[in-house]
Amino acid sequence: MSIKTILSNILTEIAAQIDTINEAQLHEFKNAIIGANHLFLAGTGRSGLMISAFANRLMHLGLKVSLITEVSKPKANKGDLLILGSNSGETKSLIAYAQQAKDLGVKVILFTTNGTSTLAKLADNIVIIPIRVDKLSQPMGSTFEQLSLLTYDSVIYSLMESLQQTPEIMKCRHANIE
């Protein structure tokens, strides 16, 4: 099979998942972001890479954002929001972060495929990204990771409208020491 055919199959598979995502969950997620004093984000592995890209775009929107793994993150307080990305919802380090956040009165939102996981039980809100694989069997959590990134980018676009941000304004916040 050609690489372009594989790419086409991946895009078709991702597109087939969109209708399974709950729009109300996405709006709750968006509103929680708008209402938060500070956003903390965490994920591990490739899911962590996707959520790091999301954190970057949230910063470009002018929001106060920190990755949990960054040494320069500020103290978390009530009114803050912890956003976690976990395919399984069972990642031990993320469970520890969620429990610490709950103890501090920090709201927790989870992106996951597993609505009954340990993390889902700790979360205040969940965005379930159900994955149905019909034809293509990508390795491990690839479909979740790809769809998460696209969903995060879609949330960013919606936030741009709500926060009256344009690509030009956001670009002014782009790193200038690279």
Rank of each mutant, 00 (worst) to 15 (best):
N9G: 11
N9S: 15
A16M: 09
Q17T: 05
Q17Y: 01
D19C: 03
D19A: 07
T20G: 08
L26G: 09
E28T: 15
E28C: 13
F29W: 10
I33E: 02
G35A: 08
N37L: 07
F40H: 04
L41A: 15
G43W: 12
S47R: 09
L49W: 02
M50R: 03
I51N: 00
A53P: 00
L58V: 04
M59G: 10
L61R: 01
G62C: 09
G62L: 08
I68G: 06
T69C: 06
K73T: 08
K78H: 05
K78A: 14
G79E: 07
D80P: 11
G85R: 00
S86L: 03
N87W: 11
S88I: 01
S88V: 02
K92A: 12
A96V: 15
A98D: 08
Q99M: 01
Q100E: 15
Q100F: 13
L104K: 07
G105M: 00
N114M: 08
G115E: 07
G115C: 03
G115W: 05
S117D: 04
T118I: 04
A120W: 04
D124I: 00
I128A: 03
P130V: 06
V133E: 15
L136V: 07
L136S: 06
S137V: 13
Q138T: 12
S142V: 04
S142W: 00
T143D: 10
F144C: 14
E145I: 14
E145D: 15
L147S: 01
S154C: 12
Y157L: 15
L159R: 13
L163E: 04
Q164Y: 09
Q165N: 09
M170G: 01
K171W: 14
R173T: 06
H174C: 04
